[in-house]
């Protein structure tokens, strides 16, 4: 399974995790994670805080290292090999809870930095692509502003444009709306729905169940470092099988 050559193979499953375990010191955060994601699949991961959801997706672009098991991204296994990690990171975009925009660069420069420095693209071409994606997230007029001048929702949309500008095959979203004021959540979710409709492979950690029902192909419920249940949204919300899933859903839907 999976090429050992380190070359991207877009016929392979987008992501494949086999028996992945991770520990923080003595603490067992990820327990025997097995997950396969097909290209263009949209997965929403939910679960109580501390259940390992963020750690799981952060393992995929190796912001965290796993200690047992295997992770393949488009057929390439994640190892200590720095070159391979870079190949994979170019194909995987990520959006963070706290945006993590670079405060010393304008919105446009945030989007073009990796294009010019990683893809070695001429500035004019990079600017064109950057503007395209700022238009897609509906804030082209903010291109020359600095992150400190933007609202939270605008910052998160720039962050999405920044990740998309690299034309990744896979997008990871780590609680993209949980640091936002309620009135700004919708503008970010709208952009994410657009993206889902374009056929992007997406892994989204979120508590926005409305969004999940609308776009997810599959729901993944995690608790205590394990994947407890995986199911299409209709089944997951209407007819959860596991007791813990039921409890979680009742807590999150009934307030």
């Amino acid at each position: 399974m999976g090429s050992e050559t380190g070359a991207i193979n877009d016929k392979a499953p987008a992501i494949k995790m086999v028996g992945v375990h991770k520990w923080f010191g003595q603490f067992h955060v990820l327990k025997d994670i097995n997950l396969e994601v097909e290209p263009a699949e949209r997965i929403v991961i939910c679960g109580p805080s501390g259940s390992g959801k963020s750690t799981l997706i952060r393992c995929i672009n190796r912001l965290e290292t796993h200690q047992q098991g295997q992770i393949f991204v488009e057929g390439v296994e994640l190892t200590e090999d720095v070159k391979r990690i870079h190949t994979i990171r170019r194909e995987v975009g990520m959006v963070f809870q706290h945006f993590n925009l670079f405060p010393h660069l304008t919105a446009l420069e945030n989007c073009t930095l990796a294009l010019t420095r990683v893809r070695k693209m001429p500035k004019a071409e990079a600017d064109k692509i950057g503007m395209e994606y700022l238009e897609m997230v509906r804030i082209p007029e903010q291109a020359q502003k600095y992150p400190g001048q933007l609202s939270g929702g605008q910052q998160q949309r720039v962050a999405i444009a920044r990740a998309l500008a690299m034309k990744p095959h896979i997008m990871l979203f780590d609680e993209p709306t949980s640091a936002l004021d309620p009135e700004m959540i919708a503008e970010v979710l709208d952009v994410m729905v657009d993206l889902a409709e374009s056929g992007m492979t997406m892994l989204v950690v979120t508590h926005e169940m409305g969004f999940a029902k609308q776009v997810a192909n599959r729901m993944v419920f995690m608790d205590g470092g394990e994947i407890i249940e995986q199911a299409p949204p209709s089944e997951f919300f209407e007819n959860p099988k596991n007791e813990r899933t039921k409890l979680f859903l009742s807590q999150i839907l009934n307030h």
Partner: peptide, 21 residues
């Protein structure tokens, strides 16, 4: 913040570029 480093690495910059840029 740690997030700055993570965001830079996640967008494909190398360790050296992350430090310098």
């Amino acid at each position: 913040s740690k997030g700055q480093r993570e965001a830079a690495l996640a967008s494909g910059l190398t360790q050296g570029q992350t430090m310098n840029l």
